[in-house]
Nucleic acid binder design. Structure first.
Lengths: 278, 278
DNA sequence: CTAATAGTGTCTATTAGACAGTATGTT
DNA sequence: AACATACTGTCTAATAGACACTATTAG
């Protein structure tokens, strides 16, 4: 009997059917990374309001990580699907529903929670911030994100009306032959758990997906100008784009309306809406 | 006190710190989707051996799903990281190590295991099949994959030396504005659990990643001809590629050696190897 | 010689980048 | 008038697709 045969006859099937002490049950949570793009209040009547890429954080009231900020999250019920749990928590904490949500990654480092073993499946939500306004709890706040990359390090500065904080993660290739990497937290004072990793992973995912999908329209109001849309792309990608090229690429995804946005100290702009059938 | 304030003061923090009955612990497993590309034994001295995209499955010896096939997998230890668990199981069941491995997706449907609530984080491994040969257990077998897509349905035919089976899944968009979709199993006789979903998700991921990363080289031997490499791409993508275009795109990723592969009834071919620094 | 793959050259079509130039609002 | 954005046209560069053509082996 070979070593492998022995294994298959015992361990695989064994593990499927039994639950020995080594494999005791663990807790599963879900954390929701809610991204949106917010606008500055307009200072100069000529200029377009500056846009900020932002994330919703919640201040913890109890230990561990008391007074630190974290992503909204909670335990997955024993009879609850993962995405259902994420939507329940999202609805409870932000009062919104029917939002774009996708599974991001499952974080399972043994020591990621100081209390006990907790594995967390994170979800990424993309919202139009106006749908939430006025409903935020005292403990929740939007933080504008500013990303600075130097070498393999990424510094993420977070700024709300009240607070400023930042963390630094290092992007580390796990495999030289692919874009398979993970992040390591280099600096972090104010964020709870391994949430810097979740945020970094989400930024990465969004920056990728914005290039080949239409997810960005989940962060837009129903009607928008192409200038505003371009600003959102620029804000998320962290780079300037050339308007003619942007318009060429985006033109099949949007539909002109007969509405026009006036009021800026410049030529008025046609309002567009998302065209899903193309 | 607003509804939201009430919520934040209670539920978020409550859930973090307590473990009420509704949120009892659950079992976490990992399933490993092992892909490789195998070659037919050569029948015509002129023709290149045909290549097959294949997956490693294990036959279950016990209930539930007795005598059905499944992906190798097992429970995650309470003090074991997710990827560590995947590597442990991979090593035990296939006797290989140092293999390309990436987290694929976490499947958590409440009813995915008939015994109890089990959430599974799947990993995808890419291997060169020659490294495994001779070590396979009786219960394990490579299945060649043939994919037929019609409309939103994908039929996956699996064929080993001994057995043939197939399943059909439907690709369903979850969000009209993105490529965020999930699969639904339409037909499945012989595969255990929700493993048709895992396989479909993995095929998708691999087909995507092969276009913008170098993952494919994890499935290649150290030295290979460009014709063989092209065949692997064609096998995984399920479409023919034009040789001049393929060579143009691939040329920066490979390095010519001074070795030559002779023996076919045709012009000999230069052997290349992967060049990671480009 | 033949069948089969190896490998190159080149034309064309498509897409991306760059920039100039015109248009039209508000103050 | 001045500024700021809206919007278009066009040149160029880079990339992808198609196909013809040459090279070289085993049998």
């Amino acid at each position: 009997m070979s070593n492998n045969e022995k294994f298959y006859k015992s361990e695989v099937d064994f593990l499927r059917d039994y639950n020995p002490d080594d494999f005791e049950k663990l807790s599963l949570t879900t954390d929701i990374l809610i991204f949106s793009v917010s606008s500055d209040t307009q200072r100069n009547y000529r200029k377009l309001p500056k846009k900020h890429f932002s994330v919703l954080l919640v201040k913890r009231g109890t230990y561990p990580f008391k007074n630190k900020w974290c992503l909204p999250g909670g335990f997955v019920g024993i009879k609850e699907n993962l995405e259902e749990a994420a939507r329940r928590i999202l609805l409870n904490e932000t009062n919104i529903d029917n939002v774009y949500l996708e599974q991001l990654y499952t974080f399972g480092q043994v020591d990621r929670d100081p209390r006990m073993r907790i594995v967390s499946t994170s979800y990424m939500a993309l919202v139009d911030q106006k749908k939430l306004k006025g409903n935020l709890s005292e403990n929740a706040a939007w933080f504008d994100i500013t990303i600075t990359e130097k070498g393999s390090n990424m510094k993420v500065a977070l700024k709300s009306d009240q607070e400023k904080m930042e963390f630094v993660v290092e992007k580390k290739l796990k495999d030289e032959s692919s874009f398979n990497y993970s992040y390591i937290v280099v600096e972090n004072e104010r964020l709870a758990f391994d949430h810097p990793l979740v945020i970094s992973t989400g930024i990465d995912r969004l920056r990728n997906k914005i290039e080949y999908t239409d997810v960005v329209f989940n962060m837009m109001p129903e009607y928008f100008t192409l200038g505003e849309l371009q600003l959102v792309y620029e804000t998320i990608l962290g780079e300037r784009l050339l308007a003619p090229a942007f318009r060429r690429v985006i033109k099949d995804k949007v539909e002109k309306t007969d509405m026009i946005k006036k009021g800026g100290g410049h030529r008025p702009s046609v309002l567009y809406k998302y065209k899903s059938d193309h």
